[in-house]
Simulated assay, not measured.
Amino acid sequence: MADIDDRWHRTGPDGTKHRTDRYGQGARWLLRWRDPDGKQRKKSFRRKADAEAYAATVEHGIRSGSYIDPNAGKILVDEWAKKWLDAQAHLAASTYARYETAVNTHILPKWGNVYLSSVKHADVQQWVSSLASSLSGTSVAKVHRVFSLMLGWAVRDGRLARNPAEDIRLPRPSPSEHRYLDHAQVAKLADRCGSYGLIVRFLAYTGLRWGELAALTVGRVDLKRRRVHVAESVTEVNGELVWGTPKTHERRSVPLPRFLVEELASRVNGRPSDALLFTAPQGGVLRVRNFRRAVFDAAVREVGPKGFHPHELRHTAASLAIASGADVKLVQQMLGHKTATMTLDLYGHLFPDRLNEIADRMDSAVRAPNVPQE
């Protein structure tokens, strides 16, 4: 049980009260308790009501197993951020790099010299709102997510009773507008890319991410079955190439149109299975920055659309597949999305509107000769 002591003492023959400042200026009430480890704890308060309220919290925490050491949160966010980042070795290198950038660029300048226990919900809300003046809604959400993950880790470590970054109102992200090329535009852009045109057509008709294309080996291209087996990805992080699994960590099989099979034959037949299908001019991994600088961006400036980048060929692949009659599950499998919901969130507007078709079928069923009419 927690004990509350009055820290006023009678010191004179006339009964005058004298306050000690041993535990802090103006503090009168002293709360003592033993934590779950049996260690003696104490905390002083100005008002008895505050001491009683805190005592109730302590006793409830001890009984329920949710007790938090008052000193556990006395660690600077700067130090905690370093501990948290060190524990994120399980992340993909590109994801880790994004988290590290968010920490160093946005979180530490604001919170680095603040104790974990001093981070308040209202202050986090004000900070998030201020970020919106210089960052897009999507970027603000990403920075907030990193901070919330970091504080959530502190909750699980017993340093905070709750996460002060939860239930924060985020700025509404601006909807991203995807651009899609049609078959004629793909052909025109590929033609302007010269010997690299096959890469443009490959991305536009398979939907592979750039890192998946760059890591694709000859042995994972099955021309007879017209399939590409996506099992690996390579990403450039701070100038270094990092190899790993695809974004969803799952392998998938992607279909090849027959015209691509014909074009790929010379790159596959007679080559070692571990050779890269597409390489840089001097050999080795083809990097997207070099590809854009050497070929792609110049072709885009000539034929458009303005600012078009290689990843938008993945969106193009989705639109062309949907236009050809592919259902959402097939598009999901081709693109390697984790769920069909993700596919619908991104490309649901491209699927044909079949509501009238359904209504017409029900109308026909009702009007059939064997359906009694009122």
Rank of each mutant, 00 (worst) to 15 (best):
M1P: 13
I4H: 10
D5F: 09
D6R: 07
R7M: 11
R7W: 09
H9G: 04
H9R: 14
R10G: 07
R10E: 15
R19S: 14
R19P: 05
R19H: 14
Y23F: 13
Y23K: 06
W29T: 10
L31W: 11
D35S: 02
D35R: 01
G38V: 02
D50H: 08
A53T: 14
V58T: 09
V58C: 08
H60Y: 12
S64F: 07
S66F: 02
N71Q: 12
K82T: 13
A87M: 10
A87P: 04
H90T: 08
A92L: 00
A93H: 10
T95A: 11
Y96A: 12
A97Y: 10
R98Y: 05
R98S: 13
P109N: 08
V114D: 02
V119D: 13
K120E: 15
H121C: 08
Q126R: 12
S130I: 00
A141T: 02
K142C: 04
K142W: 00
V143S: 01
V146C: 06
F147R: 05
L149N: 09
M150P: 02
G152H: 11
V155M: 04
R156G: 11
A161I: 13
R162E: 13
I168V: 15
L170F: 01
R172Q: 06
R172T: 14
R172Y: 00
H178G: 08
R179M: 01
L181V: 04
L181P: 05
H183T: 14
H183L: 03
Q185C: 04
V186P: 03
K188H: 06
A190K: 06
I199R: 12
A204N: 07
T206A: 03
T206G: 01
E212N: 00
A214C: 02
A215F: 01
A215Y: 00
G219R: 05
R225V: 04
R225E: 15
V230S: 04
S233T: 04
T235D: 15
E236P: 02
N238T: 15
N238W: 13
G239K: 07
P246N: 00
V254G: 01
L256D: 09
P257K: 03
F259R: 01
A265N: 05
N269A: 10
R271G: 05
F278C: 03
A280V: 05
G284K: 06
V285R: 07
V288N: 13
F291P: 09
R293F: 08
D297R: 12
E302H: 08
P305M: 09
G307E: 09
H311A: 03
H311M: 03
H311W: 05
E312S: 10
T316F: 04
L320S: 07
L320E: 06
I322C: 11
I322A: 12
A323Y: 13
S324T: 07
S324N: 05
G325E: 10
A326K: 14
V328L: 15
M334E: 12
G336K: 04
M342K: 10
T343K: 08
L346D: 01
P352Q: 15
N356K: 15
I358R: 12
D360I: 12
S364W: 10
S364H: 13
A368Q: 11
E374P: 12
